[in-house]
Amino acid sequence: MPSSAIDELDRRILTEIQVNGRITNQELSERIGLSPSPSLRRLKQLETDGVVTGYVALVDPDRVGLGVTAFVRVRLHQQDDRHLTIFETAVASFPEVMECYLMTGDSDYQLRVVVEDLSAFEDFLRHKLTRIAAVAQLTTGFALRPIVYKTALPL
């Protein structure tokens, strides 16, 4: 939780660093209309408050041989704490799982899985996902191509 409310200047800082996490403090300060010292101080406060949680490079999955994206809906045998913990601990250790959400509705979880090809997905399914004791049912859909992919939040 931030120590203070996020104001318009903070939002402008966040918008800029979401587009370019490697922006220099000088360029950031020019873009948001604030001198460099207070600009840096605000950015450091956003980091300290946990609003900015890290910086990453976005890698094109196709260019590194990860051309298959699967969305897997998972139902558990039971939705008690023990089964949830078993499942969550297991999937957190799988490098193929890019995202995992606890869901409402027909499934308990939704995963976004990235692999090289369909054979690699079958291996992932047979040797990892179906071996989790808590799993009762899996339903998979494959992405044909991305239409909208964003990393920046709409501030």
Rank of each mutant, 00 (worst) to 15 (best):
K44C: 05
D60I: 04
S107T: 11
L155N: 13
V113I: 05
A57E: 06
G65W: 03
L84E: 07
R82M: 12
F71R: 06
S37M: 10
Q137I: 10
N20R: 01
Y101G: 00
S37T: 15
D123M: 08
L28M: 03
E8R: 14
I13H: 02
G54N: 06
N25V: 12
T130D: 01
L102W: 10
A90Q: 02
V59K: 00
L9Q: 15
R22T: 12
F71L: 13
S3M: 10
T104L: 11
D106C: 06
E47V: 08
Y101P: 01
T69E: 08
E88P: 05
L144Q: 01
L155W: 13
V19P: 07
D80E: 10
E116F: 07
R22Y: 12
E122P: 10
M103I: 02
L34V: 14
A70V: 07
L138N: 07
E116G: 10
L129N: 03
G50R: 07
A90R: 06
S3K: 14
L155C: 06
I86D: 13
F142D: 04
E16D: 06
T69M: 06
R131M: 11
V97C: 00
P2V: 03
E116S: 11
S119N: 14
Y101K: 08
L155S: 06
R42P: 02
L40D: 08
T151Q: 06
R75L: 14
L102D: 02
T15C: 09
L40C: 03
D60F: 03
H77L: 14
P154W: 08
F94C: 01
T48F: 11
V72M: 04
T140F: 00
N25M: 14
V97W: 00
V59F: 08
L118G: 13
L125A: 09
T130I: 11
I23W: 06
R112S: 14
T15H: 11
Y149A: 15
S93K: 08
L153V: 14
A5S: 14
D108P: 01
A152F: 00
D108Q: 00
E99N: 12
A5F: 10
S93Q: 07
R73L: 12
V74A: 00
Y109V: 03
R75Q: 13
I32P: 02
G50I: 06
N25C: 09
P38D: 02
E122A: 12
S39N: 01
L46T: 00
F121Y: 15
Q45T: 09
S3C: 14
V115A: 04
V51R: 03
R112P: 10
R145H: 11
L144C: 08
V91P: 04
S93L: 09
V114D: 05
L76D: 02
R82V: 11
L76W: 13
